[in-house]
């Protein structure tokens, strides 16, 4: 039972596109155990992606079951996850273990369908909504070298204003 050190931005490994897992062997399974311990060791840890501990393979763990009154799929190990369908969108606030001391607003799909291998190598499909869907999208972004910082929306005006693009003489700051 080990806890692995979480790497922090600007570590280059957070910007890498992770590679798919080809074979689920003892090494992978023991890594997954350590990854889960690492996630659970964080206060409020509800999701983690392998590249966050410097291992750039396509493995994500999420477990939002501690949050009351939401729909969720329980503890999930997602190996080579693929989001197959996106529906709706919502603004939510996110932070990241790899970006300490900052949270920001991000737009995510409200509902997603995804498929992934589980620890036994079986491919499974999941439907996720709301909070769980947002967490899954955040973690799967890590596998593609993306941070929530790449998707920030302005804190001001993001709820009401339609953007009107007008070139203006005072726009060049």
């Amino acid at each position: 039972m080990a806890i692995i050190k979480v790497i922090k931005y600007p570590d280059d490994r957070l910007k890498v596109v992770s590679i798919p897992v080809k074979r689920i062997d003892q090494n992978i399974l023991s890594f997954i155990k350590d990854l889960e311990n690492t996630m659970r060791a964080e206060p409020g840890g509800i999701g983690i992606a392998a590249p966050q501990v410097g291992n750039t393979i396509r493995v994500v763990i999420i477990d939002v079951s501690s949050k009351p009154n939401i729909k969720h799929n329980g503890r999930l190990v997602l190996i080579n996850p693929e989001i197959e369908k996106w529906d709706g969108y919502a603004v939510g606030r996110e932070g990241c273990m790899s970006v300490p001391d900052y949270t920001g607003n991000v737009i995510r799909a409200e509902k997603i369908n995804l498929s992934a291998m589980d620890e036994t190598g079986q491919v499974r499909s999941y439907e996720m909504v709301g909070y769980e869907a947002r967490v899954a999208q955040h973690e799967i972004d890590h596998l593609d070298g993306l941070l929530f910082l790449d998707r920030l929306v302005s804190r001001r005006n993001d709820l009401f204003r339609r953007k009107v693009y007008q070139p203006s003489s005072t726009d060049n700051r």
Binding site: G44, G45, I48, G95, C96, M97, Y131, R134
Partner: peptide, 8 residues
């Protein structure tokens, strides 16, 4: 509305 911030 609540702001449900998560750290992922």
């Amino acid at each position: 509305e609540p702001i449900d911030t998560f750290i992922g």
